[in-house]
Design a protein around this nucleic acid. Structure first.
Lengths: 243, 243
DNA sequence: CAGTGGTCTAGACCACACA
DNA sequence: GTGTGGTCTAGACCACTGT
């Protein structure tokens, strides 16, 4: 028997949805987990199955859950890999996807600059983790990334073997820190390459670079990671659908 | 009494949704129109109100309809203005929105090149309408656009006063041609400015420009307009949310 | 087979807009 | 008050998955 928390003035399906979403954000239910059946939830909350169904439908449309007829309802595994691949035409034959190599250049703990601590909602001067990573394709550098994390939440990152940090970070946040990235906001601009970038990306000074700033959030909307990626503009391609 | 068309193997709410969506794409119901009440639709189709509700809910989540409690359900007026504004930081104080001036440079009828006729699903060598437009901000050119339309569907565009074509085209497609743009796919790349662009945008040869290719579609997904916009990269900023 | 989600029905009552 | 959409119930039957 589960208790329905939250504001009593809200509709019941909304309160159920909020509660389940929070359980997922808190890691009580993890990506891939199977949810209780709708009938069981209905019994537990003493609500009609239709009401539970409405709550689950909302979480499905938010991308938090996935339903499979006959099998059950599961916490969705977010896959941000695709979003990375949408950025760059990463050469290769059309349709072919090359996994870019990742090389960690730095891993430090230091106070985050103000524009980072503001977005991550950290206290001013609170210690933060800063990673630098270079991404290469066929040994060619294409993207330089600066990644900021709250030290408090991502401590295990400091202990992990450098080789494992290479290609994909979000599964590591998930497995080692219990934090799942569920959504993100990105901002794209074009700038002229500065001295340092010129060197690491092996381009000419003043060549255009694409700058992608991303704030990644958990299922409950709390900010988890801020990153700034600088890439060769001549390799850049971004596709998007607008509704 | 309305007849339910479409594949009988599909669920009824799906067939209702398809039918209503098609009526909207065909202009039988126009943006801003009020839909029949859910109870009336239920009577007309001889279905339970809940089934109609499911169909309407789907169209709302697609962005085709809007519900207002107590008032009714309406065909949504798509507003693509905002998407234009998301592209450029258009200077001004933060939050301020300057409406860019639009100046038509050309309006011709000619066969579309292959990459255009393919995307607009036109017959090879079928006549098409091609508009060139320059967008300025505080008298400063920022964006050069090449816009392609099917001649058959957009004939009235050829007769309209040039001044009215200036700022916003989509309301004109709507009012004069009965075609509503409901969604679009965009692709962004960075290129070096060519001779012609250098001249019209008043930048230096080789300066980076942002290229936005857009295919706009109607409510039923049929392609309506293809455009290629070239803008100053130093004015460019794109914000997007990923889920 | 039993258990899951998917569709559909036929109501009840509530909240809001408008005349 | 009447009519709209919003919430909620309590079922029925179907389609699919796994045992």
């Amino acid at each position: 028997m589960a208790t329905l928390r939250g504001d009593e003035r809200l509709p019941r399906y909304q309160r159920v949805a909020d509660q389940l979403r929070q359980e997922i954000a808190d890691g009580v239910r993890r990506p891939g987990d199977r949810m209780p059946s709708e009938n069981l939830l209905a019994d537990q909350y003493s609500l009609a199955p239709g009401t539970i169904r409405q709550a689950v439908t909302q979480l499905v449309s938010e991308g938090v859950l996935e339903r499979f007829q006959g099998k059950g309802t599961f916490v969705r595994r977010p896959s941000f890999d695709q979003s990375l691949f949408r950025f760059f035409r990463f050469l290769g034959r059309p349709g072919e996807r090359l996994v870019p190599e990742g090389r960690i250049l730095g891993r430090e703990v230091k106070p985050a600059p103000e524009h980072v601590s503001l977005r991550l909602e950290l206290d001013q001067n609170a210690p933060a983790i800063c990673l630098s990573r270079l991404r290469l394709l066929r040994k060619q550098p294409v993207l330089l990334e600066e990644i900021w994390l709250s030290k408090q939440d991502f401590m295990p990152i400091l202990e992990i073997d450098e080789k494992k940090l290479g290609p994909l970070l979000y599964p590591i946040y998930d497995e080692h820190c219990g934090r799942t990235v569920a959504s993100a906001e990105e901002e794209l601009t074009v700038e002229a390459a500065d001295r340092e970038t010129v060197h690491t990306l092996q381009i000419a000074e003043g060549d255009p670079v694409i700058v992608i700033e991303r704030l990644a959030r958990g299922f409950d909307g709390a900010p988890l990671e801020w990153r700034r990626s600088v890439g060769r503009a001549d390799q850049f391609r971004y596709q998007i659908e607008i509704r």
